[in-house]
Design a protein around this nucleic acid. Structure first.
Length: 604
DNA sequence: GTAGGGTTAG
């Protein structure tokens, strides 16, 4: 009931309509609870002022938009207003667009546009309804978005920065990054927010290369940068390992004053440096920050963790807790990752237990994955199996796949078969898993096992993740895939590669061809590169890097899969033969190659 | 009076 009998008017009705209006507007001004609003609403009805434009707008706005409002109430109120005006429509559409039921927003928009004599949508209406489309995940939202887009164009709002930004985000948020780009390209002019949004749309969709390319265009158009630009670009630099561009962002941040003013920028810088393999620089930014939040601490803990420097990650964790910052589930991912790569089994187990007992953080599947990796890597395969069995969602193929990976390191057929059986049962086994188990069989000279895996792959059809490597030279990011011939300097790269192979062969490099799994050659199984005799993307990147950078320059490579044994051995030899430090960031960790050795100590 | 952009993990 809107007119509760227990809600008497707040004061005696004013005498004239004008004073009534003023009194009610004053009351609305001070209204901060729904209860007070109930009473004011009752007054409004008694005074017959519900259709007074200022009053109804304020009433509705409070219900639909303010934190103490109620959308249910807003909807009832809306239907009491005769001939709602643009402000009313915008209020109700705005309110629902950010609610848990954004579809209602579209519903009201539909009503609004269904009768042409009603208010026409304006720039605000479009912004709100597009936000609603972005949040509704039904396929229907797609056609709605296109329809709204059409209306936007027909009504001339396609020149409006804000509407177009909303359109872009709405498209990108639903997987249609091409349409987002199309909107961007077709705008007659763009402001800084539009550029930043394009970058963040790309970054959030995982198109980091395109995000960085957008910055090239930005430079040409001279639009400048702000903190948002820097953060978006730094995140993409971190993802693709573009250190030089990241350093350029750092310089811009320093010069423009954002470094000290904006905690986001500092946080993104720490993450970028850590992900690009330069922990010292990450630490220096960290040390220089006046204020630190959970992102700052997590970035440094995770940074040390993925570099396999578990003890230091633990040290940062201690400092963070001492400074009163509460760790979250990501902090523990960093810790467990660090423990796993440094073989700190006891510490890892301790932190895993601490999560729930002390910090009330429920371990998620990723944390279980770290534990399986920690124990499995250390050869405690039975315990790793127990962890999977204790996990609430033991039906996750990733856990079994991690265990299978550990079985490969320790050549354990028995538990490897258990892992594979579970993967098959979950209908999740892929070619990469077969390759892993086949490797284990091969290493214990089990020819039948190898042959069974070969059959399994044939019957399933090979489904693999294509491997790629990024490398940045002079602010340009170069991407290579296996046996790549798309690079403009392909001939030069292959010539250099053959030369490099000759050099390292003189030092003792032998291309690994351990398994005689002829039918598997050249494939990249999910998680691990596989195959010999083919030119893996990092070999091409290394050859390119050697030919294009001065002697002694460190080569930094980022790849999407794990390094295969052959490439790992190759890179060690190259680091010695050419006196180069080579930093390879693979899917799970960093490898620092120097003087023929790798920081992972051949344990990855 | 109402609208658009950012970081870790995934």
């Amino acid at each position: 009931m809107l007119l509760s009998q227990e809600s008497p008017p707040l004061e005696a009705p004013p005498e004239t309509s004008n004073t009534k209006t003023k009194t009610i507007l004053n009351l609305l001004q001070g209204c901060n609870t729904l209860k007070k609003l109930h009473k004011i609403h009752a007054c409004v009805i008694t005074a017959g002022l519900l259709n007074h434009p200022a009053i109804s707008t304020k009433l509705l706005n409070f219900c639909a938009v303010s934190v103490s409002g109620s959308l249910l109430y807003a909807r009832l109120l809306f239907y009491q207003i005769h001939n709602p005006q643009i402000d009313h429509w915008n209020s109700i559409i705005r309110g629902f667009s950010r609610s848990s039921s954004p579809i209602q927003s579209i519903f009201f928009y539909n009503q609004m546009v269904s009768i042409p004599t009603r208010s026409r949508p304006d720039t605000y209406t479009f912004s709100f309804v597009l936000r609603a489309c972005e949040r509704v995940i039904l396929p229907l939202a797609d056609s709605k978005r296109k329809e709204v887009h059409g209306t936007v164009i027909r009504s001339g709002y396609d020149r409006d920065f804000v509407v177009c930004t909303n359109l872009m985000r709405s498209y990108a948020g639903n997987g249609s990054i091409e349409n987002a780009r199309k909107v961007f390209d077709e705008m007659p002019a763009r402001d800084l927010v539009t550029w930043n949004s394009m970058i963040s749309c790309y970054a959030q969709a995982g198109f980091h290369y395109e995000a960085l390319k957008t910055y090239d265009l930005m430079r040409i158009e001279n639009v400048g940068v702000d903190g948002f630009t820097l953060v978006g670009l730094l995140s993409s630099c971190a993802h693709v390992g573009a250190l030089n561009l990241g350093i350029e962002m750092h310089r811009l941040a320093r010069e423009s004053g954002f470094l000290n003013r904006n905690i986001y920028v500092g946080n993104a810088l720490i993450d970028m440096y850590a992900k690009c393999g330069n922990l010292e620089a990450a630490l220096s930014v960290f040390d220089g920050m006046k204020k630190r939040d959970i992102f700052t601490w997590n970035s440094i803990v995770v940074g040390y963790g993925v570099h396999g420097r578990g003890l230091e990650a633990i040290e940062f964790f201690r400092k963070m807790v001492m400074e009163g910052v509460k760790p979250n589930s990501i902090t523990f991912l960093g810790l467990l990752c660090g423990c796993s790569h440094q073989g700190l089994v006891q510490e890892g187990v301790k932190f895993f237990n601490l999560m729930l007992s002390k910090y009330n953080i429920k371990p998620e599947i990723k944390h279980y994955g770290c534990m399986v990796d920690l124990l499995g890597r250390a050869g405690k395969l039975k315990q790793a199996l127990d962890v999977i069995n204790s996990c609430p969602s033991q039906n996750d193929p990733v856990l079994w796949r991690t265990l299978l990976g550990s079985c490969k390191i320790h050549k354990n057929v028995e538990i490897g078969e258990i892992a594979m059986r579970n993967l098959v049962q979950l209908r999740a086994s892929n070619a990469g898993d077969c390759v892993l188990l086949a490797t284990i069989y091969g290493e214990v000279n089990n020819a039948d096992g190898v042959s069974a895996m070969r059959k399994m792959i044939k019957s399933q059809g090979i489904k693999t993740t294509p491997g790629w490597s990024w490398m940045e030279i002079n602010d340009q990011v170069h991407k290579f895939v296996v046996n790549d011939i798309s690079h403009p300097d392909t001939n030069e790269i292959y010539m250099k590669l053959r030369e490099v192979i000759q050099e390292v062969t003189l030092l003792g490099y032998v291309e690994e061809d351990s398994m005689s799994l002829v039918s598997l050659k050249g494939f990249s199984g999910e998680g691990y590169c596989w195959g010999n005799g083919s030119y893996h993307s990092e070999k091409l990147a290394i050859a390119f890097g050697i030919s294009r950078t001065p002697v002694g320059t460190c080569l930094r490579i980022t790849k999407n899969l794990r390094v295969c044994r052959d490439c790992h051995s190759f890179t060690k030899f190259v680091s010695k033969a050419f006196n180069r430090e080579i930093v390879v960031r693979d899917r799970v960790r960093f490898h620092h190659f120097k003087d023929g050795e790798c920081s992972c100590k051949d344990y990855w």
